[in-house]
Amino acid sequence: MDFDLESLVHVEQSFYDEGYKDGFDHGRIHGLIEGRALGREKGFEMWEELGFYEGFALLWKGIQEAQGVKDDRTAHNIRHLLELTAQFPRANPSATDASELDIPRLFRQIRSRYKALCAMLGVKPTLRASGSSPAQEATEDPGKTPVASEEGNGLWKIDDTRVSVPPKDYSF
């Protein structure tokens, strides 16, 4: 009987290598699944924000055209914001793609142009996600002024004399 003593010495390393290979293959599969799910979620958030900016620019462009307003600076910023949103890729750019598109940089430019346009129009920029809670919106209401307490946190005055109209509940 021919017995290989050398393989017995390295038995622990061979089990370790086999386990590592199996774990790596298993992790690769789950990493792809989780990566796709996260990419889908973040991609939807980006497109939602991009659609908001494009819709905002198109709305104000339509308002200016309907009113016959000839403000060159505002029209220039609207046009520039629409050009920036048009540069955003409509398909998923792969890592092997030859284009050197810097998506975070493009998003920063779009956000900056949006803020500049809001300043020109006298509109408060809103960068909240659409899923913000009503409690957050109530604390961000510019019509109400918080009353300072000893702890320094903002409390709303109960005997406020201003009449507040409850928001209409639209159901579709």
Score class of each variant (00 low, 15 high):
Lys144Asn: 06
Leu50Cys: 00
Gly62Met: 05
His80Thr: 06
Lys157Ile: 08
Ile103Ser: 01
Arg113Gly: 08
Ile33Leu: 06
Val11Gly: 03
Glu65Lys: 08
Gly27Ser: 14
Ala86Asp: 09
Leu101Ala: 02
Gly23Asp: 07
Tyr20Ala: 11
Ala119Ser: 13
Tyr16Lys: 15
Val9Arg: 10
Lys21Ile: 04
Thr74Trp: 04
Cys118Leu: 02
Ile158Glu: 14
Lys168Glu: 09
Ile33Tyr: 04
His80Phe: 09
Arg36Ala: 09
Leu82Ser: 05
Ser130Met: 14
Gln64Arg: 11
Val123Ser: 01
Gly31Tyr: 05
Arg40Trp: 09
Val163Leu: 13
Ser133Lys: 14
Arg36Val: 12
Lys144Ala: 07
Thr96Gln: 11
Val163Ala: 13
Asp72Ile: 12
Tyr16Arg: 15
Leu117Phe: 06
Gly39Glu: 01
Glu150Arg: 08
Asp22Ile: 06
Ala37Gly: 04
Ser112Cys: 07
Ala98Val: 15
Ala138Ile: 09
Arg113Asn: 12
Gly39Val: 03
Glu54Ala: 07
Arg79His: 12
Leu50Asp: 00
Ile29Arg: 09
Arg105Ala: 15
Lys144Met: 10
Phe52His: 05
Asp159Tyr: 07
Arg28Pro: 00
Phe56His: 00
Phe44Thr: 08
Lys115Cys: 09
Gly68Lys: 03
Gln109His: 15
Leu58Asp: 04
Phe15Ala: 11
Lys61Ala: 02
Asn92Val: 10
Ile33Trp: 03
Asp71Lys: 00
Asp17Trp: 10
Glu18Val: 10
Asp22His: 08
Glu151Gly: 08
Glu34Pro: 03
Leu84Trp: 05
Phe107Gln: 13
Ala116Asn: 08
Val11Tyr: 09
Glu45Phe: 14
Arg162His: 14
Pro142Trp: 08
Ser132Cys: 11
